[in-house]
Amino acid sequence: MSEYKKDLEKKLTPIQLEVTQNNGTEPPFKNEYWNLTDPGIYVDIISGIPLFSSIDKFESDCGWPSFTKPLDVKEIVEKLDTTFGMRRTEVRSKTADSHLGHVFPDGPPPLGTRYCINSAALQFIPVDELEEKGYGEYQRLFA
């Protein structure tokens, strides 16, 4: 068992557990970060590893946080997902092996990707708290 997987029932809310460990999906437009516009980074709720930045976040009208790209592509794993009779690409965090959401080819230019991510899989770190929470190296993104 990964060090990150210990005692998750005690560390996570029921929706965080369902999304990250059981490939669940939270309701659109009724989740913590779908319309958050504050500057900062989004980290994996389980491992704390930075995944996305508010700089790459955009309003996609889908009801979940949407990003054009991850902070580090090496921390993202993409897998074919054929559940519910659909063919789409699941996005997981590499280190914690958590379900994050899906990536679609309908994002804005120039990349054209939309990482549609469940808020329940993320923790938001505001730019003014980056240093104190150990993410000071990411302040350069907002300079």
Rank of each mutant, 00 (worst) to 15 (best):
94 K>H: 15
90 E>I: 01
138 Y>N: 08
74 K>S: 15
77 V>E: 15
25 T>A: 13
60 S>E: 11
25 T>K: 09
45 I>F: 11
19 V>E: 02
134 G>I: 05
5 K>G: 00
32 E>R: 09
2 S>L: 13
143 A>V: 05
38 D>G: 07
120 A>E: 06
59 E>H: 12
73 V>F: 13
28 P>A: 14
40 G>A: 10
74 K>V: 02
116 C>G: 04
64 W>G: 04
100 L>G: 07
76 I>C: 05
76 I>K: 11
120 A>M: 10
102 H>G: 01
133 K>I: 10
112 G>D: 09
47 S>P: 07
67 F>G: 02
52 F>L: 03
30 K>D: 14
124 F>M: 01
58 F>P: 04
110 P>S: 11
95 T>F: 12
65 P>R: 11
93 S>Q: 05
43 V>C: 05
117 I>V: 12
108 P>Q: 09
31 N>C: 04
4 Y>W: 15
104 F>M: 12
101 G>W: 08
15 I>S: 11
66 S>C: 11
56 D>Y: 03
44 D>S: 02
110 P>M: 13
70 P>T: 11
63 G>K: 07
40 G>S: 08
128 D>W: 04
51 L>I: 03
46 I>D: 00
137 E>P: 03
105 P>F: 04
88 R>K: 10
100 L>D: 07
24 G>N: 01
109 P>E: 13
28 P>Y: 05
11 K>W: 02
105 P>Y: 07
65 P>Y: 12
106 D>L: 11
112 G>I: 08
9 E>W: 07
82 T>W: 00
72 D>T: 00
108 P>W: 01
13 T>L: 10
55 I>M: 15
121 A>M: 07
90 E>Y: 07
112 G>A: 12
134 G>A: 08
106 D>C: 10
64 W>K: 09
36 L>I: 06
121 A>N: 00
100 L>E: 00
115 Y>C: 03
118 N>I: 09
46 I>C: 11
120 A>R: 06
74 K>F: 03
38 D>N: 15
13 T>M: 08
55 I>F: 12
36 L>K: 13
